[in-house]
């Protein structure tokens, strides 16, 4: 029994280190003075930390603007994805109707056509639709990518709230809309917020579509890829960029940690 416990704890420890050490290393690298990064022999732990590397990254042309672009696109994506997916989710959760199963299947099938497949034909179409190199265009593609997830998550949130509660409200004189707004929505808010945050991460992290669909109005990942491929940006820029990219994701994953299982658990079905 104790041997088993020992086994469990050592395995947990090794796996934790496997996940955590790279995160720690990029964080150190992001605050290591530039010349130390290129030194040989290379010290593992710098004698002093500096904000200089991060400052260099943030002052790099376009970084600040593309960060704002990324946030704007992510927020727009959340709005669009919810406006489109939430009503469908409600219908899927609450009504039995003809075509319900096919719709559900279609939404799941969209997971098979990810960014790579969508972006290139859409780039051609966007030029015609005057959406090429616009943040709206990127947000629309991110919306398309997040709709399967948002639909499945929000549907399961609504399914988790007993329909009898809404019916009770209706027998007490509410209209269907009132019953939704006063009973279901308040109870669904935490789950919806988690879905929203998840959508934010999805958009914030998306590289391929953003790279293909923009030229001057880059999101942050697109800008970094561009700087690395096109301009061969220096190492310290890359490390600082990597760190900067993961910070919001870490905070956000921490915020929704309670929902991680439900979020992914339900996307299974």
């Amino acid at each position: 029994m104790t041997l088993r416990r020992l086994g469990i704890y050592s395995a947990a420890l090794v796996i934790s280190a496997w996940v955590a050490v790279p995160l720690l290393l990029i964080s150190i690298a992001a605050f290591t003075p530039r010349d130390v990064l290129y030194q040989w022999p290379r010290p593992l732990w710098p004698e002093q930390f500096t904000l200089e590397t991060m400052r260099f990254f943030l002052r790099f042309t376009g970084v600040w603007q593309s960060t704002l672009n990324s946030v704007f696109v992510a927020v727009l994506t959340i709005g669009l994805a919810f406006a489109i997916a939430a009503p469908a989710s409600y219908a899927l959760a609450r009504f039995r109707f003809r075509g319900r199963d096919s719709l559900q299947l279609a939404i799941l099938a969209t997971k098979m056509f990810p960014a790579t497949v969508l972006s290139i034909p859409l780039a051609v179409a966007f030029i015609r639709w005057h959406l090429y190199d616009t943040l709206l265009g990127v947000a629309l593609v991110h919306t398309a990518l997040s709709i399967p997830f948002v639909t499945v998550i929000v549907t399961s949130v609504f399914v988790g709230i007993s329909y009898e509660l809404e019916e009770a409200a209706m027998t007490l004189g509410s209209s269907r809309a009132q019953a939704f707004l006063r009973v279901t929505l308040p109870m669904a808010l935490p789950g919806l917020a988690a879905a929203g945050i998840f959508t934010f991460v999805l958009s914030w992290n998306e590289v391929f579509a953003a790279t293909i669909l923009t030229l001057n109005h880059r999101t942050l990942p697109a800008l970094i890829v561009d700087s690395v491929i096109g301009a061969g940006a220096p190492l310290h820029f890359r490390f600082a960029g990597g760190f900067f990219m993961i910070v919001p994701a870490l905070i956000i994953i921490f915020l929704i940690r309670r929902y991680l299982l439900t979020l992914w658990g339900v996307t299974v079905r």
């Binding site: 040989w40 992290n205 590289v207 890829v225 960029g241 993961i246 994701a249």
Partner: peptide
């Protein structure tokens, strides 16, 4: 929570993280 953290990390950021390990003056060589 710790092992789930990489869910929030993009392929781009993951590449940059491991670049800091595998690059010539990276942590692995150190």
């Amino acid at each position: 929570y710790l092992t789930a953290v990489p869910i929030g990390i993009s392929d781009l950021a993951a590449g940059l993280i491991w670049l800091s390990i595998f690059t010539e003056r990276g942590y692995l060589n150190a």
